[in-house]
């Protein structure tokens, strides 16, 4: 949460200077489920990346990377559009590897 500023401390006219902004996290919106990816099934098509309504699907350059849960609202659209069923929804409190990356049934490091 940004600290509330006084009237003379903010730019005039309602202007927001883009570079000053750190967007709030929206991961708290999730209602019980979060996505996880089995990289052995992922074909790196990026459809989940494009269809994510927030920015929870991370790409590294032009390759699929994993999930940024701070910006995942839990809609499961990524799992729905995944052509290889690589993405599955798991309970939000389930422990998952960083960025939800699984390989050969276990966490995928790096």
């Amino acid at each position: 949460m940004n600290e509330l500023k006084k009237y003379h401390e903010i730019p005039i006219g309602g202007t927001v200077i883009t570079k000053d902004v750190v967007q709030p996290k929206t991961g708290g919106w999730r209602m019980g489920e979060k996505p996880m990816v089995n990289l052995d099934k992922c074909v790196n098509c990026l459809i989940c990346w494009l269809d994510c309504p927030d920015t929870a699907v991370l790409a590294e350059g032009t390759d699929f990377f994993g999930f940024e849960y701070d910006y995942c609202k839990g809609c499961a659209l990524c799992a729905e559009v995944c052509p290889t069923d690589a993405i599955v929804m798991v309970p939000d409190d389930q422990e998952v590897p960083e960025y939800g990356r699984m390989l050969n049934g276990g966490p995928h490091e790096n």
Binding site: G14, T15, V16, I17, T18
Partner: peptide, 10 residues
């Protein structure tokens, strides 16, 4: 070079 958002939601 310095993008701004003008006319935001308050």
């Amino acid at each position: 070079q310095k993008p701004t958002t003008q006319g935001p939601f308050d």
